[in-house]
Every structure is written in C-alpha cells, then in structure tokens.
C-alpha cells in the first residue's frame, strides 16, 4: 500500500470569504466572543502553550473504502506516537439511528483500532457514555458497534457506569469545580476523541471537544447530562475537554449531519476524515470545512487560548487543502438560543 496516497504536503489555510457562510453571522448573534484581554480562567501550569498543531484532511469516499489505510496515513502524517500506549477511543454513540447519521460509524472505529495496532499501541479500548440512553448495551448492539468490536477482539467500556473518581478542574469556565471521570479515561495513556461531523442546536458544531461530554458518567450526571448543559454549553465544553485532554482526534466526516443536529438532522456527504494531534485545531479545521468561521464559535475560539491552537494560520495541514473541500452545512434551527432542554451530544 502506498504510505501517502493522498499526496500529503504541508500548507497553511487559504482562508476565503466563501468559506464563511450563514454560520459566521449566526454565531455572533447574542454570543460574547471573548477577547484576549479576558483574565485567565485556567491554571497556566496545567496548560502549557502548544507550539505546533498538525491536522491531516483525508479523502474517504465511503465507509466501504480502505479506512484502516486512511486512518493510518493520517496518524502517520501528524506524527502520532502511540507505541506501547494504552489507547482509549471515544466515539460519539448517542442513539440508535437506522440511517447511520447520528453516530460515529463503527467502521471508522474498527479501522482506527487496526491502524493503532499497526502503529504499536499496547492496547486499544473503545469507550462511550451515551447521553440520551441509559441502556448503553442497546445502543452499542443496535448500532453494530458491539458486534464489530467483538469480531476484532476489542473491549468496550460503558463510561456511564464504569468505576470513576472525582478530579479537580484546572479551568474555571463553569462553577462545577470538579468532575467525576471514569478510570478508563483517567488512566489511559492516550485518549482519542472520535466525533461525527455534525451541527448542534446550541454549540453550532459538535466535534472532538463537545464529544468529551460522553466521557462523564450518566450515573452521576443523569440522562441527559443536564447539569452540564445548564452550567453553560460553551463553558462546559471547555472545562470537560480540559479535564479529558484528548491527545488526538479523528473526525468522521465521511457522512456528517447538517440542519437539525445533533439528533434529527439530515445526512451531509463530505467524504473526509480529519485527523490531528490537537483537538482544538481539529475542531477549528472541521468547522471551517463545514462552512463556519471557527473564530466566531466561542468555545473553539476560547479553547484556542489555553487548550490548543484555533488560529487557522497556525495549523499545519497535511493532505487536502481545507479551502478546496469546504462543504457548507445548513445550520441547526434554533442555533444560539435555548429551544430544548435536552442538550445532546
């Protein structure tokens, strides 16, 4: 197999006005985009400034493609080091959906398991704590993830009920103070966030940072994890992602969801996987591909101050030029206002 079938080369973003569609204006309405002069809301010692963010934007035409090679290419392109590591993959499995649009596709998860094995990971575990369904077993079986993982001998951890412990937060965007985190997340050498590329009625886009909500146990926070949403959606995303600290992200953008996301939207074919060593940079890149200006999405912009790099000009991109693959998503109705109390992942 060609190690670099995507003609990977370094480039920076060519930001064009065409990339900023309806989201650019919508995101700013009623939202306070923080300024750089805002006092730190994080412990600087816990979040050393990142010096480099690498993201690979990779073509993947369908779920029947050789996804293992695509993921492997992406991880190699960003210099992912998982040799000897105990890796936890955190997909976004919210709800059974017969159309396969809501969740990270199990084929991407299995491809990632194989690719990480080829890169020398000591172990790979898949873990998720669905936010709407208390019966994780049903979600995992109905979506096909359970059978797919058994076929490749990979274990699954239900983060909603697995052993967990409280950890103090090193950021203070909410008044939560501490979060209960599953041992599977706390003790992993490497956590990889694997979201579906989707719109979200509160956060505009739900990507690798928002996906971290599913790391928190439902047995403490409930179904849905309403206390977190009411602490402020952007603020919760920042504090939770700052606690989980995924090392890498792999975004399933082969078929995303636009419109009434994250549950009731419609399929949006993009044909991409986005892989990176900085979840903030991955989310900024993915939001850009979705036709949004990441600088106008408060949680991404703020995450760029302490958790990673959100400035498109500072992200080194391998593979496809993001400007050439922009695929504008229809925004979620009600985006930016509270029309539901459920939140969602």
């Amino acid at each position: 197999m060609d190690a670099h079938p995507h003609r990977i080369g370094r480039r920076t973003f060519l930001r064009g006005a065409a990339a900023v569609g309806a989201f650019g204006a919508a995101a700013a309405v009623g939202w306070e985009v923080r300024r750089a002069t805002t006092p730190h809301q994080w412990d600087t010692a816990a979040f050393p400034p990142p010096d480099l963010a690498r993201v690979a934007v990779l073509r993947a035409g369908s779920y029947d493609a050789d996804l293992e090679s695509v993921v492997w290419d992406g991880l190699r392109a960003i210099g992912a080091d998982v040799s000897g590591a105990r890796v936890v993959l955190k997909p976004n499995m919210v709800e059974y959906d017969p159309h396969g649009v809501v969740n990270t596709d199990p084929r991407v998860v299995v491809a990632s398991v194989h690719a990480l094995g080829r890169l020398g990971a000591a172990s790979v575990t898949v873990a998720e704590g669905p936010g709407h369904r208390r019966d994780t077993g049903y979600v995992v079986e109905a979506t096909g993830l359970g059978p797919a993982l058994r076929e490749v001998g990979t274990s699954f951890v239900d983060l909603n009920v697995s052993p967990s412990a409280p950890v103090a937060l090193h950021s203070r965007y909410t008044n939560l103070g501490a979060l209960w985190l599953p041992d599977a997340i706390r003790t992993a050498d490497v956590v990889i966030s694997m979201p579906k590329m989707k719109t979200h009625h509160w956060a505009a886009a739900t990507l690798s940072l928002k996906n971290c909500f599913g790391c928190l146990p439902g047995r403490v926070y409930g179904w849905p994890k309403n206390a977190l949403h009411w602490a402020g959606i952007d603020q919760s995303i920042l504090d939770i992602a700052g606690a989980v600290r995924p090392a890498y992200a792999i975004v399933d953008g082969i078929v995303g969801m636009e419109g009434n996301g994250p549950i009731n939207g419609t399929a949006k074919k993009v044909g991409l996987l986005v892989v990176g060593d900085d979840p903030v940079a991955v989310d900024a890149t993915s939001a850009y591909i979705m036709g949004m200006d990441p600088a106008q999405l408060p949680y991404i912009a703020e995450a760029g101050r302490f958790l990673g790099i959100a400035d498109l000009d500072r992200i080194e991109v391998e593979g496809e030029d993001p400007a050439s693959v922009v695929t504008p998503f229809a925004p979620a109705p009600g985006f930016g206002r509270s029309g539901s109390l459920t939140g969602g992942q």
Partner: peptide, 19 residues
C-alpha cells in the same frame, strides 16, 4: 416516554423502552 423530551426543535421524539 423517553428521557423526558417529547418534542425537540419541532420534531416529535419517540419513546424508549427503559424509561
């Protein structure tokens, strides 16, 4: 019943078995 939201952003949400 589902977890507690019969409608969300104009869409009728289905009931779940467990709830």
């Amino acid at each position: 019943w589902n977890y507690g939201t019969p409608r969300s952003f104009g869409v009728a949400e289905p009931p779940f078995v467990q709830t």
